[in-house]
Amino acid sequence: MAEPLQARVWLFRTAFVGLALGLFFVRVLPLGTEAGRWPGPDLLLCLILAWVTRRPDYLPALLIALVVLAEDLLLMRPPGLWAALVLLASEFLRSRAALTRELSFVVEWALISGLMVALLLGYRLIFALAFLPQTGFGFAMVQTLASILCYPLVVGLSWLALNLRKPAMGEVDAYGRRM
């Protein structure tokens, strides 16, 4: 009985890496390079937060750190800063998995929105403390708002395409532990 559950966990981890690679590819394409365009949402962040909220056992911390660190290197951001912040946010959600299981979607969306805004402010605060140049606050806030608005779409697509849902009461993980 444990083998199908373990296979499902590895299938989702592989799917996550595949989706992340696809998002990396789309982000480096030279689309919309003219100035004054609206920033797109951070779909990888939405995907990580949605999956950790729904099934924390599918995304281990090391996998999240490695994928976001690869994104940092690919997008030429300070290596590890965004990865560390996203990892802190995902571990915050993971530690509250039993609590978030019983939340309605609107409350969950508000929690995720607050986390995204906190990530934005933390990232900008660290940049300010290090006297690093950064984009305008309005531009960064529009990207965060776009991510907040895309979160329900990511959750819906994860549910429809991959049947990723919150665990039921009494459900066990791949190791036989209650979730």
Rank of each mutant, 00 (worst) to 15 (best):
43 L>D: 04
34 E>I: 00
126 I>D: 01
56 P>W: 05
45 L>F: 04
123 Y>N: 08
138 G>E: 15
2 A>G: 12
141 M>N: 03
29 L>S: 07
130 A>W: 15
61 A>M: 11
136 G>S: 14
78 P>Q: 01
65 A>V: 13
1 M>C: 10
24 F>V: 07
160 L>M: 12
173 D>A: 09
122 G>K: 03
159 W>G: 07
143 Q>S: 15
20 A>Y: 04
10 W>H: 12
24 F>M: 14
57 D>M: 06
146 A>H: 05
59 L>R: 07
70 A>I: 03
98 A>S: 14
92 F>N: 01
142 V>W: 08
58 Y>A: 09
104 S>F: 03
78 P>R: 03
34 E>H: 00
77 R>A: 09
36 G>S: 10
153 L>D: 05
3 E>L: 13
166 K>L: 08
11 L>F: 13
40 G>M: 01
22 G>W: 09
117 V>C: 02
77 R>K: 10
90 S>A: 15
104 S>I: 02
85 L>H: 11
75 L>E: 05
101 R>F: 01
109 W>S: 08
139 F>S: 12
17 V>G: 11
133 P>G: 06
127 F>D: 00
104 S>N: 12
78 P>N: 02
128 A>G: 05
100 T>S: 04
16 F>T: 03
135 T>I: 08
51 W>L: 11
142 V>T: 12
123 Y>I: 04
133 P>A: 05
40 G>H: 02
30 P>R: 05
97 A>W: 06
117 V>Y: 02
98 A>D: 15
175 Y>M: 07
143 Q>C: 13
82 W>H: 14
115 L>T: 02
78 P>C: 01
74 L>T: 08
104 S>L: 04
111 L>R: 04
62 L>P: 06
72 D>I: 09
178 R>D: 00
